[in-house]
């Protein structure tokens, strides 16, 4: 009886994080509406220019998403410490955007590294929309 209880717990704790990219987009849509009453949907095009936009970091170096992910999100990228990053585009890597905790963890870190601030829900949604649209 106790085991069944734990099993149930495990099942639910896993299912909280498991998601499809579409479900994640819906979560970000809800947030984006709270952040901005005039929210007008996500755009893959805006996501693409966000992905490629270069920023001058306060340390003086140029940085963008493509610094580590390369300019083609169907390719593997590389961290600054030499580790392979699997492709960001869902067509090349179906595991992308299926774990909301993981997605939030990396947005949390990388937005601060690249933009030196948190990303808005609008930006996160555009970004995912773009990476789902790459064929």
């Amino acid at each position: 009886m106790r085991n069944t209880f734990y099993l149930f717990g495990l099942f639910f704790s896993v299912s909280v994080f498991a998601a499809t990219p579409q479900e994640l987009l819906r979560q970000y849509e809800t947030q984006a509406k709270q952040e901005n009453a005039a929210f007008g949907g996500f755009s893959a095009e805006r996501g693409a220019s966000f992905f490629k936009a270069e920023h001058i970091h306060s340390d003086g170096k140029k940085v963008s998403c493509t610094t580590c992910h390369t300019s083609d999100p169907r390719n593997q990228g590389k961290t600054r410490a030499n580790k392979v990053i699997e492709p960001m585009a869902t067509i090349a890597n179906p595991e992308r955007f299926t774990d909301s905790a993981k997605v939030e963890k990396w947005f949390g870190r990388n937005c601060k590294d690249v933009l030196e601030r948190s990303c808005t829900a609008q930006e996160k949604g555009d970004y995912i929309q773009y990476l789902m649209s790459v064929k």
Binding site: D59, R80, K105, G108, R109, N110, K112, D113
Partner: peptide, 12 residues
């Protein structure tokens, strides 16, 4: 970890 050798590597 928030400034881990120049990168944000924070954890829960």
């Amino acid at each position: 970890l928030d400034k881990h050798f120049g990168e944000n590597a924070s954890l829960d």
